[in-house]
Simulated scan of single mutants.
Amino acid sequence: MSTTTATHAIPTIDISPLFGGDLAARESIAREMGRAAETYGFMKLVGHGVPPAVIADTFRAAEAFFGQSDDAKAPYQERKTNRGFQPMFDNAKPGQKPSGQEAFSMGHPIPPIDPALLPLPFYAATPWPDVPGFRERLETCYHAMFQVGEAVLQAFALHLGAPADFFANVSRNTYSNMRVVHYPPQEVVQHIADEGVRAHEDQGLITLLIQDMNGGLEVLGPDQDWLPVVPDEQAIVLNVAKLLTRWSNGRLKSALHRVINRSGRERYSIPLFIHPNYHQVIDPRDFAPDGEAPRFEPIVAGEQVYKNFAGERKSWAELTS
């Protein structure tokens, strides 16, 4: 496959009308976002309202954490919860080379309303490291990005013909998480990993991503070419994830994407993965037009995501061996 194409590019959409009171303007943006989601599964959002200072602070927090020794980071390693430190080369499916990245994942800062959810893995407490300002900066960024995610899901609900609050109602006990990710230059990790993160589709409803200016993110486009998601200091990248593709009966596209850090510099990114309630049933009949056969069987959101993670984290396998 080639890495460039002349016929397609990831669209940029100004979503500022989503935060206003003009319903017609919101519906117009929702249609534009829906078309981009159906064609690419990816788009860049400007007018999102996340303050640049919050983004800068979060990148600085990431640099401070990952700048420590492996021994200093190890006590905060996640324990089959998708919360905490994930070491370099941990993402690997059997028989494949691992991804050349390390990450720290925080859970949703607001505990679930239903206390019965607390024992489930994705509701575990985040093991915060003793790095000054780290938790405060990440939580501030999380809240700002999550507000964008709520507006995005309202737009997708409108596009799919559902009430605007559809996804809010099924996400009141969300197990969403935000990560800060560090990619060394590709030449540093290439003896073990061919890519910073191998080609994959995200697991949840949507992902919002802030990337630095070093580039490296690529998405598989409609012509099966790898399209660069060119960095933009003003933009948040949005991509559809697998649960939403399934729920929309395949209408909204979850696209393969990968990262190869060819910049020669350290690369950092901040993805927020938005999920519904752990027990939420993902049933395409909720959105399929009358007479349209469902393409997918119903699944339970959290159970499916946990199963998928268990098959691609080396550290999870080691904990059960």
Rank of each mutant, 00 (worst) to 15 (best):
M1Q: 05
T3P: 02
T4K: 09
T7Q: 15
A9I: 14
P11D: 02
P17W: 02
G20N: 04
G21E: 14
G21S: 14
E27P: 07
E27W: 02
R35Q: 08
A36L: 12
E38V: 04
G41I: 14
G41Q: 13
K44S: 11
G47I: 05
H48A: 04
G49N: 05
V54R: 10
F59I: 12
A61T: 03
E63M: 14
F66T: 00
G67E: 01
G67D: 10
D70C: 08
A72S: 10
P75V: 01
R79T: 05
R83C: 09
G84E: 02
G84N: 04
M88Q: 13
D90G: 06
K97E: 12
A103D: 13
S105Y: 15
H108N: 15
P111R: 07
P112S: 07
P129G: 04
D130V: 14
E136K: 13
T140Q: 13
C141E: 15
M145Q: 14
M145Y: 06
F146S: 01
F146W: 06
F146D: 09
V148K: 10
A151S: 14
A162I: 09
N169H: 05
V170R: 05
R172Q: 11
N173E: 07
N173G: 08
T174Q: 12
N177F: 15
R179Q: 06
V181H: 07
Y183W: 09
Q186S: 10
Q186Y: 03
V188M: 12
Q190A: 12
I192Y: 00
A193G: 01
D194K: 08
E195Y: 08
D202Q: 01
D202I: 10
Q203M: 15
E218N: 11
P222S: 05
D223W: 12
Q224A: 11
V229R: 05
P231E: 09
P231A: 13
I236N: 04
V237S: 04
V237A: 15
A241L: 02
T245C: 11
A255I: 03
L256I: 00
G264P: 14
E266I: 10
E266S: 03
S269F: 14
S269R: 03
I270S: 06
L272W: 01
Q280H: 08
Q280D: 01
F287T: 12
E292Q: 05
E292A: 07
F296N: 00
A301I: 13
Q304H: 02
V305D: 07
Y306T: 13
F309I: 15
A310V: 09
G311Y: 06
E318T: 13
